[in-house]
Nucleic acid binder design. Sequence first.
RNA 1: UGGGGUAUAGCCAAGUUGGUAAGGCAGCGGGUUUUGAUCCCGCCAUCCGUAGGUUCGAGUCCUGCUACCCCAGCCA
Length: 554
Amino acid sequence: MAETEHHPSNFIRQIIDKDLAAGVHDSIKTRFPPEPNGFLHIGHAKSICLNFGIARDYQGSCNLRFDDTNPAKEDIEYVNSIKEDVHWLGFDWNGEACYSSDYFERLHGYALELIDKGLAYVDFSSQETMRELRGTLTEPGKNSPYRDTDAATNRAEFEKMTAGEYAEGQCSLRAKIDMTSPFMCMRDPVIYRVKFAHHHQTGDKWCVYPMYDFTHCISDAIEGITHSLCTLEFQDNRRLYDWVIENISIECTPKQYEFSRLNLEYTVLSKRRLIQLVEENHVNGWDDPRMPTIAGLRRRGYTPASVREFCKRIGVTKMDNMVEMGMLEACIRDDLNVNAPRAMAVLEPVKLVIENYPAGESEQLKAPNHPNDESMGNRTIPFSGEVWIEAEDFREEANKKFKRLVLGKEVRLRNAYVVKAERVEKDAEGNITTIFCTYDAETLGKDPADGRKVKGVIHWVDAKAADKAEFRLYDRLFNVPNPAAEENFVDAINPESLVVKSGFVEPGLSENPAAGGWQFERTGYFCLDKDSSDSVKVFNQTVGLRDSWAKIAD
RNA sequence: UGGGGUAUAGCCAAGUUGGUAAGGCAGCGGGUUUUGAUCCCGCCAUCCGUAGGUUCGAGUCCUGCUACCCCAGCCA
């Protein structure tokens, strides 16, 4: 069961296998618990694939639970985007979406239970005092003067807190554990604080909100979660997680397991930094194609399957990691290579005129939609005596390594004829404006009859029939592999992360194909962007083709 | 001697009772090719942070050391 045909095993699946074998559980239940305070990113995709993937492979279930205990930072806009992104990734949660706020009433009851057991107290110490009494990493803390308040008084004070009789910061409810614990989170952690904030789910019903550590474990238990999976920074918190479950009256005892969060080179994956990129307009919103958000990847042209494949390839361990961007790119290339129909587009056009082509004539050429998959069929593309070709595909002179069009030499126009460059026309600045060629009318769909070898093949689009297009080419958002380690990460932003080109595409490219986009032969994978208009189509480059020529070139 | 974690190739990562280092990405070499793409073939850790120890035999067990990550929010 650990290793299905879809997913390699990992240490968490091995734990589940043992639990199932030992009869600890009959079925498995997981949850994906985002706080709705930002958009989901590729790091969340790792957690989503882990939690939903386990639920699927073990015939269990996975809840979507919004961990909404801090109304000051959260917004309904985020809960909606999170639902959309989880669905887009191809997963569906068990029943209705859950919210930690669904349990506020019960959470409040458990807090009362702890108070009655003498395991929680209302502390009127200031935050500064609390910090001083907490001690340091190497020195134990000291008890608060409110620590020994009797249960009845604590209950009354907590009721007053709940009734709004105390101001924010005036007091808090603390679990009474151990001020000398080597685990800082066990030194009488705050479990409830006063906050007069409007909540996106509960409105103005509450003015006290439970803290994460108190809420998460109980929410897991209420939902019957068997394996609560989170990232490494919560390892110490597991002691508090278990303490709360042990000290309240609840049957279910979920277990927390931690795995390492994803780090991706040349980008940032922390909510705080992503929010800053958006708010300071370093990017054009959460779905900017350069963003590592699910929305950004989607707009960039990544497919759900490619993101899932990426999550499968990187695995799940407890090791700190920094995954190369090339790993993600390989996943989308593998997907699009087999699924994306081919088309032709010229990003930086220069005019090519075929002087011996019948004046005023044109024809419809047949081109396969995929060179290795006949089932994808053919399309017709218009051809005439005037076409656009890529400026970089022509040189007046070049060495034999340059297998493209050179003055006096021949090259194959992809899906069309062999042409020979005869002369060029330049403007006042010396820029080539037109390349004049002759073509061999006998080379359509076959090699030259006399056995001449034509090695080069270049792409083109018919000048009269082509559609005007804007191409947005993206590069890494940052110039350094680990921008988060910089003094100020925004200083490491790559100023050339977006390059816009104006050119042409073959006619007929309107809707994105099912796979997500096209491969513009010899240039890369592209998808149609929502910024397209009737007069200009806008394409985002999802990823370029592997380019071994670039290495040889220089 | 605060505590909690992690150390296997450039990157990710298998390796579960000790038996002689999977796979993927990247890279390199070759073949096919009307995409310098794809595809195909081959190569790429005498070695598992380090120093010792146990053993016929250790990435796996023991001891010491080192490096890196996390914890002192009324954030999650």
